[in-house]
Computed example of a mutant assay.
Amino acid sequence: MATMELVTDTAPAPDRNSAAKATLDRALVDLSPDGHGRGVEIRRRIRFWSGWTLRIGVPVFLVVFWQLALNWKWTSEDTLPSPKTILEAYKYLWNNGSLQDAIPVSLRRAGTGLLIGGFAGLLLGIFAGLWKIGEEIFDATLQMLRTVPFIALVPLFVTWFGIDESSKLALITAAALFPLYLNTFQAVKNTDQKLIEAGRTFGLSGFQIARRIIFPTALPGILTGLRFACSFSLLSLVLAEQVNSTAGIGFLIINAQNNQRPDIVIAGIWIYAVLGILIDLLMRGVERLALPWRARVGIG
């Protein structure tokens, strides 16, 4: 009579448990605050402070090099005033009230032009991006006009609007309109069609799809366009205030040029640069608040 043998695993139970525990130990990562978490926090702080050190250190180095170039007679005080002379120029402008009068005027011009041009560019970009008829009416014309440089528009705007505030606001408005329109239009048009189809599948109407899918998806592009619009409005302000200005930072620069005061000219240029930095910081803050979900991408 044939016999049957039952084949069983003869490995001892303790050996199997030890192997499983070793595999599990290799798979686990220590995420406790006293383990790798502390190292990550230290590295994050080092990157933060090193970044701010570089941001502040590079401009300081340039100012120091500027002063050294004057001390080493690489250039003259008449051609490039020293940083100390520039600070004295700020003190002079502050004491006679010119600085307090000029900055609000320039900010009002840039802000008004940005508000009008940015709002128009946003509306046109949404209209052209959502509706085919809007794209056919506006896109070709605006794509053509955006290639015209600002300086070429100055004589035309002076002819149309005169030499008063109207021509300056028109130039800043045009400068702010085009970048916001282009970025808004492209952001709306580049919305993933699969998301739109999914919205339709769930029964969303056209307005609901635009509000819940298209606009949130296009928001990063719109904010990028707003940042460009702020920068272009400041650049156009520099140009606009060179045309028959009686107030503003540009007026200070032109008046200083006529009076052979290069220190005040450079002081005015520094004001434009500081305004540009403040605008960039403001837009970074707006983007962080509006887009908290966006990942911070970097390779180092």
Rank of each mutant, 00 (worst) to 15 (best):
S231V: 04
I279Q: 02
R16N: 02
S76F: 04
I133W: 05
S32D: 11
G121K: 01
T85A: 15
F232I: 00
P155D: 07
G268I: 03
F228K: 01
S245Y: 00
L62K: 05
R16A: 12
E241T: 09
F150D: 14
L278C: 15
I46L: 13
L234Y: 04
L28F: 02
G117M: 05
P179V: 02
I46K: 08
T3C: 02
I151L: 15
L142T: 06
R16D: 06
L180Q: 02
L87W: 12
R284M: 04
F207Q: 12
G121M: 02
N190L: 07
A20L: 13
I133M: 04
L180D: 01
D101V: 06
K73Q: 15
W72P: 02
A295S: 14
P220R: 00
R38W: 11
N255A: 10
P155R: 05
T191V: 15
I213T: 08
A140T: 12
R45V: 03
E77C: 00
L289N: 09
T224I: 00
E88G: 03
D9N: 14
R146H: 07
P155H: 08
V29F: 01
E41H: 09
I249G: 08
Q260I: 10
C230K: 00
T184K: 01
D78G: 11
P262C: 09
E77R: 12
K21V: 07
G117S: 08
G250Q: 08
R26P: 00
S18F: 05
A102F: 06
A218E: 01
